[in-house]
Design a protein around this nucleic acid. Structure first.
Lengths: 193, 193
DNA sequence: GTCTATAGACGGATAGAC
DNA sequence: GTCTATCCGTCTATAGAC
């Protein structure tokens, strides 16, 4: 018995390949080659490619939830937690330059394929959106919180796209600083009585 | 003799299909089906799929140059011309919601495929970047002009990505207004003596 | 006869599905 | 392991223009 179940190994390999190569461009053989499994055994776990996609999205949702919960505990203040979100652009810089943002690129690819899992992929965005909205709400932004969350998501996505196209470290630093300035410039919450 | 050469018809059809379905997911048969020619005839015009991609990128470069030249003539001021750029998000709203931005999604897909034409695709971005830089320069932004151009490109790309994921008209309007506010808030050029 | 455009068939490879 | 479908790329054949 392996430490990790064969099914989880398949999902993990597919997750990585979908990110690096794209969903459509990744074949069963690619995944089977990574997991070292026969194709016959493959269909014991997943009947169709779409089933694998569903499992990968479910895994990404779970991983994102865990990451956000972790940030929630580790960040000292809502502003600091949003700052941690902004800095994933730096943390994952190499991967983003080569393969883009895993959330945005999957959503875009599924849109082009007119794939039925588009809404599921968008749910990953919504995880970040809801988490950010809560931070902004705790910063006293109230009614604006959701708008700010979407705004920051869009800014991050755009930076990721241009990082992939240009791979310019100066651009990344400028935009990262601009986002932190934007965050600092948000009206602070009204003081307690 | 047709009005448009068969080769140009192929490029036009491929351009559209690459945008709507993605480059990798579009087959010769797809393109041939649109142009109504046999696959055999296809290879008289293009030897490989990459040759078609090169031609499509060349066509997009030419079309973009023509569009920017048109904007350059029609806009009354550099700020108005940048405003026209911002408003393509509204003009092309339906297409962007379904297939994303043609510039950004191609660059991202080619990055995932680790395709040799990545630099050529990025050149389309550079066309917009250079044009925007010139507008900001004429607005008196001097040394900041290129940074502003990249910033606006990134903002637009991010909005396009979230438009595809959420298809929320309110979000689009808010972000469009925010971009116009940002544009209006740029320091005006120093007055002439 | 030569050149170009078109068509259609064939082959090897690979895809997803069972 | 097999099946069917589709992919890309090559091949040959035909038709008309010059």
């Amino acid at each position: 018995m392996t430490r990790v179940s064969k099914r989880d190994q398949i999902v993990e390999a597919a997750d990585d390949l979908f990110y690096r190569q794209g969903f459509d461009h990744t074949s069963f053989a690619d995944i089977a080659g990574v997991v070292r499994i026969s194709r016959g055994n493959f269909y014991h776990h997943f009947k169709t490619k779409d089933d694998i996609l569903d499992a990968v999205i479910a895994a990404r949702l779970a991983n994102t939830r865990a990451m956000l919960a972790d940030w929630q505990v580790q960040g000292d203040s809502p502003a600091a937690r949003v700052g941690a979100f902004i800095d994933i652009l730096l943390t994952n810089r190499d991967k983003i330059e080569r393969h883009g943002c895993p959330v945005g690129t999957l959503a875009t690819e599924l849109a082009k394929l007119n794939h039925g899992a588009q809404a599921d992929a968008a749910a990953i965005f919504t995880l970040f959106r809801t988490w950010l909205r809560r931070q902004f709400d705790q910063m006293g932004q109230g009614a604006r919180a959701d708008d700010l969350a979407l705004h920051l998501l869009a800014r991050s996505q755009g930076i990721a796209t241009l990082m992939t196209a240009y791979r310019d470290p100066d651009f990344l630093c400028r935009e990262r600083d601009a986002l932190h300035d934007w965050l600092d410039g948000l009206a602070p919450p009204p003081p307690h009585h």
